[in-house]
Write a protein that binds this DNA or RNA. Structure first.
Length: 519
RNA sequence: GGCCCCUUAGUCUAGUGGUCAGGACGCAUGGUUCUCAGCCAUGAAUCAGGGGUUCAACUCCCCUAGGGGCUACCA
């Protein structure tokens, strides 16, 4: 690694005018990954120069979302650093010093044109099918004239004096060489009449002062880059390297907006998606390792990421793939971790502590649970659950297996283990319970279970199969109504495990209740 | 209007002049099973269009079309 590479500094610079959305998060992620991969620094800077649109709620929301995602910044709000402040509203003096430099060396000038005149001018130019550029009226104002208007307090802005001829060249890490004719660029605004810098000016000043080595951002900024390069030159700073990321589009291929529904990071956080899963999916939106491997842990992302492998084409956000990635991450979590997460969701839904005690007569041997993972370390004692309940939950999660794809499905998928007030699927009832022969069978099954001494999986299955044999029906004809009676659903994990984990008392109670209710 | 970027299945992508155009999600079918999920197997589906260059083009060049961006005292 060369000396230069040891000084890699990148930044994510959102404006606090809304929530952190998937596009911004992806940009933040790539910056973060690049910094971690290269041992550089990741800076978070808040670009709040638009006083009208910036809000503290957005600011807080962005910071919270970044933290939830685990995109830890080295310098910025809450962390500080040697190049602060990291909020542009706190850097006013700096912009004014810098713009003064530009005015002094003839690269910028005061402009007294009113917004009304500019609008008129633009309108006329459009009529004449000319590019709507600033006409440069104030560009050649004499020093005396400027001084006079200034002293009178005439509202003004500051513009960059763009050369009329020449070409600006630059190279983008992802897209290669670019050149822009200066003639197509106009005298853009540096300082607004409220004294705040514009985006194009503030980014350059801040990136230069914060010693940003690589500017990694969305390609909606590609067209701004030539203007910014002029500023770097005029200000006498080194031009950083650029990497313009393809944008993330909505399903209709238009720019992501509120119309597209689920675009905010908070939305997924609130629905109990896993941060690492989201990161994984976001990473894939515009980057791939080899087109084959798609599942990456946070750490693997850092190891494998490369700017060179970022694609040029815009990507459409696909919810179903994101769900899949999320489920894969969920699958891979160790059991103890899953228990804690599931407990959290159950608790949020008011399902903890359980509405009833379940007495499992014989402790469940996790070794015989399909794909059963044993609990390691001490049990997770959260949300008023005792050891036994925690162990039961661990077993429930084990028997659930891959059926659990989204943590948010937990209440629906296993709620019946925790309350009697669970949702009953009418279709399931119609299909399996509303039949004349069923109530009697359910009662018989309840009788058998009531008599059972050891309520373990083996016994519970034997009882049911023996009963089916005696009644001269298939096991399925008992199993399906039993499932609906116990869970209210047409689908569930292995029914015998459900019986065991629901416990003798509840199982018998629900079988009888179903028999009575649907006879 | 001007300037700029992008274009492989529905979606994300691999591909860098000669490949049966590979993978993944999703979809469909079959197998396993008490249901579902899973797992296994199988299948449908792609190089935007047109010109060149070349013995050979998804790959290089040009044009067209489509999509996106910038052109703000938004960022």
């Amino acid at each position: 690694m060369s000396d230069h590479e040891t000084h890699i500094r990148v930044r994510f610079a959102p404006s606090p005018t809304g929530h952190l959305h998937v596009g911004g998060a992806r940009t933040a992620l790539y910056n973060y990954l690049y910094a971690r991969k290269t041992g550089g620094k990741f800076v978070l800077r808040i670009e709040d120069t638009d006083a009208k649109r910036s809000t503290v709620e957005s600011y807080k929301g962005i910071i919270e979302a970044m933290e939830w995602l685990g995109l830890n910044w080295d310098e910025g709000p809450l962390r500080g650093g040697d190049f602060g402040p990291y909020t542009q509203s706190g850097r006013g003096v700096l912009y004014h010093n810098e713009v003064q430099k530009l005015i002094d060396n003839g690269n910028a000038y005061y402009c007294f044109c009113t917004p009304e005149r500019l609008e008129e001018m633009r309108f006329e130019m459009k009529e004449k099918k000319l590019p709507p550029k600033y006409d440069g009226r104030c560009r050649e104002l004499s020093e005396a004239e400027v001084a006079e208007r200034l002293s009178k307090g005439v509202p003004h802005i500051v513009r960059f004096k763009m050369p009329h001829d020449g070409t600006v060249f630059f190279r983008d890490i992802i897209r290669g060489e670019f050149s822009f004719e200066n003639g197509n660029l106009d005298d853009f605004v540096l300082i607004k009449s409220d004294g705040n810098p514009t985006y194009n000016f503030a980014v350059v000043v801040d990136d230069a002062h914060m010693k940003i080595s690589h500017v990694i951002r969305g390609d909606d900024h590609l067209s701004n880059t030539p203007r910014q390069i002029h500023l770097y030159h005029a200000l006498g700073y080194n031009v950083p390297k650029f990497a313009h990321l393809p944008m993330i589009l909505g399903s209709d291929h238009s720019r992501l907006s509120k119309r597209h529904g689920a675009t905010s990071i908070a939305y997924y956080r609130d629905r109990n998606y896993l941060a690492d899963g989201l990161l994984n999916y976001l990473a894939l939106l515009g980057w791939s390792l080899d087109g084959k491997r798609e599942l990456f842990t946070h750490q693997a992302l850092i190891e494998k990421f490369s700017l060179k492998k970022v694609s040029k084409n815009p990507a459409v956000f696909d919810d179903s793939k994101m769900k899949w990635i999320n489920s894969e991450h969920l699958k891979k979590l160790p059991l103890t971790k899953k228990i804690v997460l599931v407990q959290g969701v159950l608790n949020d839904e008011g399902l903890l502590p359980p509405a009833f005690d379940v007495d499992i007569s014989k402790p469940v041997d996790l070794k015989i649970v399909p794909g059963g993972e044993e609990m390691t370390g001490k049990k997770a004692l959260n949300y008023n659950m005792n050891d036994k309940e925690t162990e039961r939950l661990g077993t429930i999660i084990n028997i659930l297996g891959n059926r659990l794809k989204l943590l948010n499905d937990v209440p629906d998928v296993i709620g019946y283990f925790y309350t009697d007030d669970y949702r009953v699927d009418e279709k399931a009832v119609r299909l399996h319970l509303l039949r004349s022969e069923v109530p009697n069978r359910m009662n018989k099954l309840a009788d058998e279970y009531e008599r059972l001494k050891y309520f373990d999986r083996e016994s519970v299955e034997k009882v049911l199969r023996d009963l089916a044999f005696n009644l001269e029906i298939t096991a399925g004809e008992l199993i399906h109504p039993c499932r609906v009676a116990l869970t209210g659903k047409i689908v569930s994990p292995d029914i015998f495990w459900v019986v065991v984990l629901l416990g003798k008392t509840k199982t018998v109670e629900r079988l009888r209740k179903a028999a009575k209710f649907y006879s």
